[in-house]
Amino acid sequence: MPVVVRPARPDELVAVGELTLAAYSADNGMTREHPYAATLLDADARAREAVLLVAVEADGRLLGTVTYVRPGTPFAEVGGPGEAEVRMLAVDPAARGAGVGRVLSDECVRRAREDGCAAVVLSSGSWMHAAHRLYGRMGFVRTPELDWSPRPDVDLLAFRLDL
């Protein structure tokens, strides 16, 4: 399936938020009542404060999304100076296994290189095993010193790709 990655358009933001929550729900059963659900649904904030990317088919069907975060900007969590971040990678559950996550991640790495970053870092839920395999295939390495828990019931594992 040919996939195009581009910045999200304003008219897509609600759908991007819904897709993000659906992907997280498929991974761990997250519901709208979960404290993080409002953040996942708020694609408008990601589009304002970071680079919100989407993957679409030729007919425009939304397949996935990712947030590319430049160093020192509001959505940065674990990155240091000169480190871009990948946040909220989400693929429509119906499109999984088709390489959508890879093309979105590759675009973040490309942008980080273009921005002159030294590395790309990210946090991933301990339950997101398919994402961990993807990051490993891309050359990311586990970076346990950056692991963290935003809530007692959520463990986030950190990964880093030196550029």
Rank of each mutant, 00 (worst) to 15 (best):
M1R: 14
P2M: 12
P2G: 06
P2I: 09
V3Q: 05
V3I: 13
V4W: 01
V5C: 00
R6N: 07
P7E: 15
P7H: 15
P7R: 15
A8T: 08
A8G: 14
P10K: 10
V14W: 02
V14I: 05
V14F: 02
G17I: 08
E18K: 11
T20K: 01
L21E: 04
A23K: 00
A26W: 02
A26E: 12
G29M: 02
T31C: 06
E33H: 05
Y36T: 12
A37F: 15
A37E: 10
A38Q: 13
A38I: 13
L40Q: 06
L40T: 11
L41K: 12
L41E: 07
L41F: 13
A43T: 15
D44G: 07
A45I: 07
R46D: 14
R48P: 06
R48Q: 15
E49A: 15
A50N: 12
A50I: 10
L52P: 13
L53E: 02
E57S: 10
A58S: 13
D59L: 04
R61A: 06
L62P: 05
V66I: 15
T67F: 01
Y68L: 04
V69I: 05
V69C: 04
V69A: 03
G72N: 11
G72Q: 10
G72S: 12
T73M: 14
T73G: 15
P74K: 15
A76K: 00
A76M: 03
E77A: 13
V78Q: 08
V78K: 04
V78G: 05
G79S: 13
G79I: 11
P81R: 10
E83V: 12
E83K: 08
E83C: 13
A84F: 07
E85R: 09
E85S: 14
M88D: 01
L89V: 09
R96G: 03
G97A: 03
A98Q: 14
V100M: 02
V100G: 03
V100P: 02
G101C: 08
R102P: 05
V103N: 00
V103M: 00
D106R: 13
E107R: 11
V109Q: 06
V109S: 04
R110M: 14
A112F: 11
R113V: 08
D115M: 09
G116M: 10
A119E: 09
A119D: 11
V120D: 05
L122H: 02
S123L: 11
S123Y: 03
G125F: 11
S126G: 06
S126F: 12
W127S: 07
A130V: 06
A131C: 07
H132Q: 09
Y135C: 04
G136W: 00
G136E: 00
G136T: 01
R137N: 09
M138G: 04
M138P: 03
F140P: 00
F140W: 07
E145P: 01
S149D: 08
P150K: 13
P150M: 13
R151Q: 09
P152K: 12
P152C: 07
D153M: 05
D155S: 11
L156Q: 09
L157I: 13
A158Y: 10
A158G: 09
F159I: 01
R160K: 11
L161E: 00
L163A: 07
L163E: 08
